[in-house]
């Protein structure tokens, strides 16, 4: 304890916050030192546990490697193989189609739901918990349920469609056209985490802002668009970015629901990557795939972050 105390005192004095102020660093330097102290645990964990495996997988992408025999350096051959592989390109098309539709849709619905779930209505705690349920149910269970819901003949979805329109619904999971909408519908069901993050964000909007607006006579909708959305825009950015990264890495649900079929119509990028790694014993090729995805996500992230300045409002400035 005493050692810690001593150190603390020394560091404090050093940083200009303690009692003795013999050495005084500039405020900017102090701030930078504090920054690095705070980030140190993450940096340590990163250097110890994350960077090594990342670098290894990067090196593997230039090798033929099955995890059993030592890797053999083959230069860019994995990348050449992928560029000539129709399944690879198909998996890219599938994944991007999904992301382009799902991410904005999910964002809009989550925002809407969060706003509704934020109302002070009786039994709201129970309602919120019910909406959160899908996030905690095991994938095995939900996989089975979806196969039943999407059944063309007696599935619930087609039954509802029949009630509403009188038409016979499609063979969702058995049709190359309809499997993607089915995947998106099932994905929208389990969106718990996006909603609860928005819910938390709504709490940090000052009620005084709303009161002022209400006095000015702004309607609920207008208040939502002129106060709520700008105030929670940092969190919208968060959900957009994390949602995009997640959408490009979809795996588990597809594995249970469609196995990528029919005829590769839901063959997602990560499904192919996983198959290459652990079913086909081609870890080198899988690593190349992973790093291609890495670069794509990195570029998308940079674009989103760069353009976010135009629509994200940070009350705290810096």
């Amino acid at each position: 304890m005493t050692v810690v105390d001593k150190t603390t005192t020394r560091v404090r004095s050093w940083l200009g916050t303690g009692s003795s102020r013999k050495i005084r660093l500039s405020l900017a330097t102090q701030e930078a030192i504090w920054f690095y102290i705070f980030v140190a645990p993450w940096l340590l964990a990163f250097f110890l546990f994350t960077l090594g495996p990342m670098v290894a997988s990067f090196l593997f992408s230039f090798t033929q490697y099955n995890a059993i025999q030592p890797p053999v350096w083959i230069g860019l051959k994995n990348f050449v193989t992928l560029s000539g592989d129709p399944v690879f390109w198909k998996s890219i098309r599938v994944t991007f189609t999904y992301a382009v539709v799902f991410v904005p849709l999910n964002l809009a619905i989550s925002l809407f739901l969060a706003a509704m779930l934020n109302l002070a209505v009786p039994a709201m705690r129970v309602i919120r918990t019910i909406y959160y349920l899908p996030a905690v149910l095991p994938e095995v269970v939900t996989g089975l349920v979806w196969i039943w819901i999407f059944n063309p003949d007696f599935g619930l979805l087609n039954y509802l469609l029949y009630l509403l329109t009188g038409l016979k619904g499609p063979n969702w999971l058995g049709s190359e056209t309809w499997v993607m909408p089915a995947v998106i519908i099932s994905a929208l069901w389990g969106m718990g985490s996006g909603v609860i993050i928005f819910l938390a964000a709504l709490q940090s909007v000052s009620p005084e802002l709303y009161e002022a607006a209400e006095i000015d006579g702004a309607s609920a909708l207008r208040r939502y668009f002129t106060i709520t959305l700008p105030m929670i825009s940092p969190v919208i950015l968060f959900n957009l970015l994390v949602g995009t990264i997640g959408a490009l890495q979809v795996f588990a649900r597809i594995y249970v629901m469609t196995q990528g079929g029919p005829n590769y119509a839901s063959y997602f990028y990560n499904l192919y990557l996983y198959s290459n790694a652990f079913s086909y014993f081609r870890l080198g090729l899988a690593s190349a795939q992973a790093w291609i995805l890495f670069v794509v996500i990195m570029i998308l992230t940079l674009i989103i972050l760069r353009t976010s300045g135009r629509w994200v409002y940070y009350a705290g400035g810096r």
Binding site: F47, L48, F49, T50, L51, G52, P53, V55, A56, L59
Partner: peptide, 8 residues
């Protein structure tokens, strides 16, 4: 290689 790159 990975160890060097990582933890040294």
């Amino acid at each position: 290689a990975s160890v060097l790159a990582g933890a040294g």
